[in-house]
Design a protein around this nucleic acid. Sequence first.
DNA 1: ATAAATACAGAACGTTTGTTCTGTATATTG
DNA 2: CAATATACAGAACAAACGTTCTGTATTTAT
Lengths: 178, 178
Amino acid sequence: MRAFWAEGYDAASIDRLCRATGMPRASLYQDFGGKEGLFLAAIAHYVDTRIGPLADALGPRGTLEADLSAFFVEVVALATGDSQTPGCLISCVLAEVAGANDTFRLELDRRFTALEDRIAQRFEHALASGAVTDKRALAGMLAAVARGIMLRARSGARAQDLDKIARVAVRASLRDLT
Amino acid sequence: MRAFWAEGYDAASIDRLCRATGMPRASLYQDFGGKEGLFLAAIAHYVDTRIGPLADALGPRGTLEADLSAFFVEVVALATGDSQTPGCLISCVLAEVAGANDTFRLELDRRFTALEDRIAQRFEHALASGAVTDKRALAGMLAAVARGIMLRARSGARAQDLDKIARVAVRASLRDLT
DNA sequence: ATAAATACAGAACGTTTGTTCTGTATATTG
DNA sequence: CAATATACAGAACAAACGTTCTGTATTTAT
């Protein structure tokens, strides 16, 4: 997972992946069927271990504002926490290979949709069902900000600057609700 | 440019690039020095022909709201206009290879910063200099939304849904200004 | 027209790629 | 303990990679 994350899909060679996982080539092909299968397994592991906590921060635990802020704290931490793996495996790596590979494009769509659903669900909990705002569009907007933050981290942006962006997004989206 | 955009950096082979450009291999190496140089030239051409019009839409031409809306119309059009090249060459392709290549990471940072500067400049024009809002953070937030839209288009999202996200972002950011 | 320089098509280079195969060691099971 | 299956390390594979080279057209400039 970390090899794909740091270097990208094509640049991470089977040799390197074997060394990184401590896995013999034969077992890798036995267990995952090939590079594509290994990559999809890495994505699944990434979602379990990295995106999971991030979605959990949405709660509901506290106020809507507190939960959204906590979510973005996790986003920035994931994007900048390890200097060897800046950005997001899904937004920065899967998104590239999704251009020419239908399997990967569908996987990307599934993972993107899942996060938006999770954010929209938090809004459903917080707001009267008759609220004027389109909750799915609002969730999509916040997910877009999160992904933009991931991309910006890939270019080496400081966590402090990304935090500012996140705070603006949370405040603006809350004002949009009224 | 379109070959890199559609297939990604590594997947676009020199053979394919020669066929796509109608350029002999020797001339390609003569004029661009190699694959990296050709890719950087493709990025520059992309900025000139695709990002330029998008930045021009920011004006100032009309009201702040009208100019921001026009900007996002261009963003969505660029992201979804050609089904063979979904998303953004910079946000979807350059961002991946930036993980393992310092030249590309610096290039990514330069291009990202340039767009944020352009958006911030539009805010400087519209707002009293003493306004409470951090214009750079607000510009960074809108740039993040634009890049999130580019990513979402890479997964096959419909232009109609991306437009909704853009409208929410414009409205929320304007409310944040007061 | 003649000389110098550039442009070109394609073969050739050595690597590296993803994948499969071979033989041996290690577990597992009855 | 014996028989069978699994796991392993590394060789071997054809294919594709980025890059360089060779010889021949084509253009440019005097």
